[in-house]
């Protein structure tokens, strides 16, 4: 067991898979000699060489499209978008080619697209995007969203071994803030399986990524101050969703709050809330609540960003109100 930051752990996952499987290679902007904008691939070029750590042209469509082509020939590319925001330039390749190829051609497209995601870093409208809802809607893509170093490594290894295009959300806010124990041995975290981070019988919070930690903080405060006990579910994968786990926890507690950093309207939370209502209406003691970013671009200046993105205080209040409903 080693203590690692979140970004060290996901890098460790890539490193181990590259050691294990010669068909795995990396492609992206500034990932080689420079080691990546967030230094996730620092040292990779020196160890694996420039054929497997490719500093690409500034061309997201070509990076994603070339990854599809390489995957069709049996390689396992791991593509980095420098910021999740820039995946808009590769959107066509993900939606048109990566997502639909297996259904049409019955050929696997094993590739990972890494998306350094989210706000709380004062990055402004073009370095704070949460892109998951754009892809959540598209059949054929998988989406994973680790919140801990353990899961960052385990989900990275699972994503690289998966025979489908996997969108890997890396929460920039967690990159260096989040440290934790990471087994040094080979392990994977299964895609499509969530985990209960905290058990409580009064309400369930369903969340992923950075907001898992805000929800856990809020739950501790709520327990100490009000004696309200919340279950916190870390979804870990968005596509496929762990509906079994969501059903179990919602039926145990009768109250559900979905929290994500992405915009509220049309977000992943909207689908989860709708599904819970269809699936478990009889078990609900209150309407399903949602928290997400306000429906505005993520602003730059800290006082503006703070009121747009979900906060621990806002989650605390929503949990409190839902428990008292």
């Amino acid at each position: 067991m080693a203590t690692m930051t979140y970004i060290e752990a996901l890098a460790r996952g890539m490193w181990e898979e590259m050691e294990r499987d010669p068909s795995v290679f990396l492609i992206g902007e500034d990932i080689g000699a420079y080691g990546g904008a967030f230094k996730a691939t620092k040292g990779f070029l020196e160890h694996f060489g420039e054929e497997r750590v490719i500093d690409s042209t500034l061309s997201e469509a070509a990076i994603v499209g070339a990854s599809v082509g390489a995957a069709l020939l049996g390689m396992r590319p791991v593509a980095e978008m420098q910021f999740a925001d820039f995946v808009t330039c590769g959107f066509n390749q993900l939606v048109v080619n990566a997502a639909k190829t297996h259904y049409r051609w019955h050929l696997p497209v094993p590739m990972v697209v890494r998306l350094p995601t989210g706000g709380y870093i004062h990055g402004g409208p073009y370095h704070s995007e949460s892109p998951e809802a754009w892809f959540f809607h598209v059949p054929g893509l998988k989406i994973v969203a680790p919140s801990t170093p353990h899961d960052a490594k385990g989900l990275m290894k699972a994503a690289i071994r998966d025979n489908n295009p996997v969108i890997f959300l890396e929460f920039k806010y967690l990159d260096r803030r989040m440290k934790g124990d990471v087994p040094e041995e080979d392990y994977t975290v299964p895609i499509g399986k969530g985990v209960v981070r905290r058990e409580g019988s009064d309400l369930a919070v369903l969340t992923y990524g950075s907001t898992v930690h805000f929800a856990l903080d809020a739950a501790e405060r709520l327990s100490k101050q009000e004696g309200i006990e919340a279950s916190i579910v870390d979804l870990r994968s968005l596509a496929p969703l762990d509906k079994e786990l969501i059903r179990d926890v919602v039926r145990q507690t009768g109250k559900a709050l979905v929290v994500h950093e992405d915009h509220l309207t049309g977000g992943v939370g909207a689908e989860i809330a709708a599904w819970i209502t269809e699936d478990s209406f009889q078990a609900l003691d209150a309407p399903v609540r949602r928290i997400g970013a306000a429906d505005v671009p993520i602003p730059f200046a800290p006082p503006l960003e703070e009121v747009v993105l979900p906060t621990t205080a806002g989650i605390f209040k929503a949990m409190h109100d839902l428990a008292r409903y």
């Binding site: 061309s59 070509a62 499209g65 990854s67 082509g69 995957a71 020939l73 049996g74 390749q93």
Partner: peptide, 17 residues
């Protein structure tokens, strides 16, 4: 044109192989 980058990726993989 969406297949152009894909074809380029095939050329890349073919060279790697």
């Amino acid at each position: 044109a969406a297949m152009i980058p894909v074809a380029v990726g095939a050329a890349l993989a073919s060279r790697m192989k």
